[in-house]
Design a protein around this nucleic acid. Structure first.
Lengths: 237, 237
DNA sequence: CGGCGTCTTGAGTCACCTCAATGTTCGTGG
DNA sequence: CCACGAACATTGAGGTGACTCAAGACGCCG
C-alpha cells in the first residue's frame, strides 16, 4: 500500500532548506547542478502513507525534505519493531543497497516530502565528483552511528532513563532544524514511542506523568514543553 | 591501550580465505592487484588487545581476517554497552568515517588478525574501479542492516527469546565460515552476552540452564552444542 | 449524540534484577 | 606439583519495576 503523489522538480537541491543536513553538503556551483539532475522526482506523502514496504525492490534512497517518517521492521514472530524516527535532511532506504530489497517499512508520520535519489546515478556521478563520494560515505557512516546510538539508548536499564534520553535526542534534532519553540511536538503515537524504546504504552504514559509530577515537563497531548532541561539531562545522564 | 603487532603484507586479498565475505568481492585479476596495494598492513591482536579506542582519530577501516572482536561504546553514565560481535570477513570502524573519530572501542576477543584499509585510498581507487565502489556501498549497507537486526533482536520481550535468537544468529554466522562442528564456541564472556542483550549475567546463566533442562542444548563452559535446532528456532520464532 | 481510536490511570502479577554465597577455571608463584 | 587468589560462572532467595489486564477519560469525526 503505497499512496503518494509524484512531482517533477528542477534545481531540487539548490533551493532546498535542509541541504546542509542532507547528502550533497560539500557541493557547489556546477557540481550542484549535476546533483540536481539526479533528483528528478519528489514524492508527497500524507500521514500514514507508505514510502516503501518490507520486501519492495530497491529503487534508490530517499532524502527527507520536510515532514517525518518512521521505519519499522517485522520481527520473526510477526510483531512490529520501530527502528527509527526520521526528520528533514535525513536519508532513508540505505539498508536496501546491499540486497536490493527493503528490510523494513517506511511510513509517513506527518505530511511529508521526500526526494527520490536513484542509487545507480548517485554512484555514477560520485565517480565524476569525488566530494560527492565523500558525502555519500559520510552519510552512510552517520546512519551506522545513529543506529549504534539507538543501541546505547536501549542499553539503559530503566524506563525513566529511556524516555529521558528519547526526549533529549528529539529536542536536539528539532532544535538543529529550527522546528522547536521550546515545545517538542511528538509526531508519533505513544504506541510508536513505546515500541521504539522497548516499553509498554502504559509505561510511556506513566513516565510522562512521572516527569510532569517532578515539574520537568508539561504535557499537552502531543506537545511536550521542557521546563527543566537540566534535570532531564541529569536523568538521561 | 593498543597493543598490537604490525605485519607488512603483499597480495593480502588474493590469497585470503574470507575474501568472498569481505570488501572486494566483485574484483578479479588486475583490479584485485590494485586492492592488494591498498592493504599494506596487517595487524595481529592478542585476546584483550584494543584495535582502537573511543575518541581515537580515524585512520581507516579494518577487515577481519581471522579471530573475533567486540565493539562497545560507553553510555553517558559511564557504563559499557556492547554493540556487536564481529567475525572473519566483516569490516569494522565504519562508524568513524563521518566524524573521523571512533565512537566505540574495538577489542579482540580471541587472537585476531585484521587488515588495515586506509579509507582515503579506498575512495581513490573506487573512482578507478566502479565495482569496488559498489562493493563499498554494499558493505556499508550491510552494516546498517546488521544493526537494524540487532534492534529487532532487542525488541523481543523475554530473556529466553533473546538468548535463543542470539544463539541462532551465532550458529548461522559460524556455519557460513565453516567454523562450526555442531558446537558453537562462545568467544565472548557471559558478561558480554548479557550486556549485548540487555540482560543481567545471572539471567544469561539461567537461560542456558533452562535450555539445558529442556534438552535443547548442551553447555560445557564456552562450548554450546545444539541438540534441537528446531526447538531453538521455534523459541526464537 | 454515539462510536472509535488514542491515551491515561489503577490493581495485581511476574519476569528479571539485585544481592549474596558457592563453584569453577586459570594463572602465578612458592 | 600444589596452594592461592582473581576472574568468571552458577545457583538461590527475595524485591521490584515494568507488564498485563481492565476500566475510564479524552478527543475526533460522522
Amino acid at each position: 500500500m503505497t499512496v503518494s503523489r509524484l512531482v517533477k522538480v528542477k534545481k531540487a537541491c539548490q533551493n532546498c532548506n535542509v541541504r546542509e543536513l542532507c547528502l550533497p553538503t560539500s557541493l557547489e556551483g556546477v557540481e550542484l547542478n549535476l546533483m540536481d539532475e539526479v533528483v528528478q522526482q519528489r514524492i508527497r506523502l500524507q500521514q500514514g502513507d507508505y514510502l516503501y514496504n518490507t520486501g519492495d525492490g530497491f529503487k534508490g534512497i530517499y532524502a527527507i525534505k520536510s515532514g517525518s517518517l518512521k521505519t519499522s521492521g517485522i520481527t520473526i514472530d510477526g510483531k512490529e519493531q520501530v527502528t527509527g524516527f526520521h526528520l528533514g535532511g535525513e536519508i532513508i532506504g540505505m539498508d536496501a543497497i546491499d540486497e536490493e530489497i527493503h528490510a523494513c517499512d517506511a511510513i509517513a508520520l506527518t505530511d511529508t516530502e521526500v526526494c527520490h535519489l536513484p542509487f545507480d546515478k548517485i554512484r555514477e556521478i560520485s565517480i565524476q565528483i569525488p566530494p560527492l563520494l565523500k558525502d555519500l560515505t559520510r552519510i552512510m557512516s552517520r546512519e551506522i552511528r545513529r543506529e549504534e546510538h539507538v543501541l546505547m539508548l536501549l542499553g539503559s536499564t530503566t524506563a525513566e532513563q529511556r524516555i529521558a534520553r528519547f526526549l533529549v535526542n528529539l529536542y536536539d534534532r528539532l532544535q538543529k532544524r529550527g522546528e522547536l519553540e521550546n515545545i517538542i511536538t511528538l509526531f508519533m503515537s505513544r504506541q510508536d514511542v513505546g515500541n521504539y524504546l522497548g516499553l509498554a504504552i502504559e509505561t510511556v504514559s506513566r513516565q510522562f506523568k512521572n516527569f510532569r509530577d517532578k515539574q520537568i515537563i508539561e504535557v499537552d497531548k502531543k506537545n511536550i514543553k521542557v521546563l527543566d532541561m537540566q534535570r532531564l539531562l541529569e536523568i538521561a545522564e
